[in-house]
């Protein structure tokens, strides 16, 4: 059986998802984007039709894949649940913790799947490290160091830099590592963060319920063209490091061929986005439980809300589940 997929949004991430859906038994049948020209282009590439609005898209499909700007996620999720179609949603699940909680509740009530695109769980190096932790190779997790440092997304996707829409570097970038920290060290009860560079550079400390500590750097203030994603997990019986050479000079000139939206370095095997969408596809076909639950998506947003509050108040913020 092939599921009919409707893409919501036709920007950078929708293109990545479209390529990934092409590797599944499922097919993209419709694309909706308020920018009809953009929708037409992606629809043509995918062999799909352009939907006039979200409601007509939802009427044509089994599952919607939301790749729209963050601040629009919650309303699309509610409308999809209303239409009783399953949902794949790019991270973050929603713009605020309250919206994210409502999104989970409305999907539960409607009996539809809500699969959140925390793609870092599908990066092979991050998954392998988590497997080693779960296998007990390093004992109890003590300190997790996570680093995601790049430049400010620009150009056509300028909604990223509108914090009211994207939630800024915390909700758009740091959330990857917030979710990963929960995945390897359990849930988080307290956060503290400080920012620099006009808020585009954030250093956060997460206190996990089990006593582990995560240190996360997320930055949109690094030199144009750079993207470093690195991690270290230290436990009572061992240490896991993902070494990444530091490719920075004291100053880096912006080059002309820099992507508008920073792309993390990927492995030489399949794209993690393909791994992710193939996994979501198989879950939607009834095979197994999702690697990322809707609650995981909501918790990550709630913790990011706490980090944003800490940045505003310079106080540690309780974010207990």
């Amino acid at each position: 059986m092939s599921l009919r997929v409707g893409l919501v949004g036709a920007g950078n991430m929708a293109g990545v998802h479209a390529d990934a859906w092409a590797t599944t038994p499922d097919r993209i049948v419709a694309v909706f984007d308020p920018d009809r020209e953009r929708a037409s282009k992606l629809a043509a590439e995918s062999g799909a039709v352009v939907a006039d609005d979200f409601e007509s898209l939802a009427g044509m499909v089994d599952v919607v894949d939301i790749c729209a700007p963050t601040h629009t996620h919650a309303s699309y999720i509610a409308a999809a649940a209303d239409a009783r179609v399953d949902i794949v949603c790019e991270k973050p699940l929603a713009r605020t913790a309250a919206e994210a909680r409502d999104a989970v509740a409305v999907c539960e009530a409607a009996g539809v799947r809500l699969l959140v695109g925390h793609v870092v769980r599908f990066f092979p190096e991050y998954a392998a490290a988590r497997d080693a932790v779960v296998a007990g190779d390093i004992g109890s997790v003590g300190v997790v160091r996570l680093d995601r440092s790049t430049y400010l997304p620009a150009g056509a996707s300028s909604w990223f830099s509108d914090r009211s829409k994207s939630g800024g570097v915390v909700l758009d970038l740091m959330i990857h590592d917030v979710d990963y920290a929960r995945w390897v060290a359990g849930d988080v009860e307290r956060v503290y963060a400080r920012s620099a560079g006009g808020g585009d550079h954030v250093l956060a400390t997460l206190s996990h319920t089990n006593g582990a500590i995560s240190h996360i750097q997320a930055s949109w203030a690094y030199p144009m063209g750079s993207f470093r994603a690195a991690f270290e997990i230290a436990g009572s019986d061992g240490l896991i490091q993902r070494h990444v050479a530091v490719p920075f000079e004291a100053s880096v000139e912006a080059s002309d061929d820099v992507s508008d939206v920073p792309q993390p370095p990927s492995s030489s095997t399949e794209s993690p986005y393909i791994t992710e969408i193939r996994h979501f596809s198989s879950v939607l076909h009834g095979s197994g439980e999702p690697r990322v639950t809707a609650d995981d998506g909501a918790r990550a947003v709630a913790i990011c809300d706490g980090i944003a509050e800490s940045l505003m108040t310079n106080r540690a913020v309780e974010v207990g589940p």
Binding site: S140, R190, I213, A234, G235
Partner: peptide, 11 residues
């Protein structure tokens, strides 16, 4: 100063 400390290593 803000800090979190723990005793996971060498308890």
């Amino acid at each position: 100063v803000y800090a979190d400390i723990n005793k996971v290593f060498h308890p």
